[in-house]
Nucleic acid binder design. Structure first.
Length: 110
DNA sequence: CCGTTGACGCCAT
DNA sequence: TATGGCGCCAACG
């Protein structure tokens, strides 16, 4: 993770590294990249990331484990189903055991 | 060029 | 605990 010229590319890079069965948050990504408080930009990047098939946007949720971006998927249930296919349990639009499956790039990637 | 909008997050009430 | 306001900043009309 070196180039910071492209904020979006940095975001995509990190999202691609999220292991199967794990999730992370917009804020965690923003912090890791160095954007700090610009977590909104991460969400915006995800919106644009829809065209990139190798970017698992479903593994990125907000800091409460809530699937805030589910309505941006083809169907309202697509995000949840993708997560469950990854082995992440979702209940009431929220990631179950969020703390346990949370993947913090600033720690995992050091 | 300028005002709005938004897949967020933190802080003040 | 619940609500609302503000910062952040790129994209859009």
């Amino acid at each position: 993770m070196a180039l910071k010229n492209n904020f979006f590319d940095e975001v995509y890079q990190v999202v691609r590294l999220i292991p199967r069965g794990r999730v992370t948050s917009y804020g965690a990504i923003a912090k890791y990249i160095g954007a700090g408080k610009s977590s909104r930009m991460v969400g915006y990047a995800m919106n644009a990331a829809h065209n990139m098939l190798d970017v698992p946007a479903q593994r990125v949720v907000n800091r409460n484990g809530l699937l805030t971006g589910k309505f941006h998927f083809p169907t309202p249930t697509a995000m949840q189903e993708l997560l469950e296919a990854d082995g992440v349990r979702v209940e009431n639009d929220t990631v179950k055991d969020f703390e346990k499956v949370f993947w913090d790039p600033s720690i995992e990637l050091h």
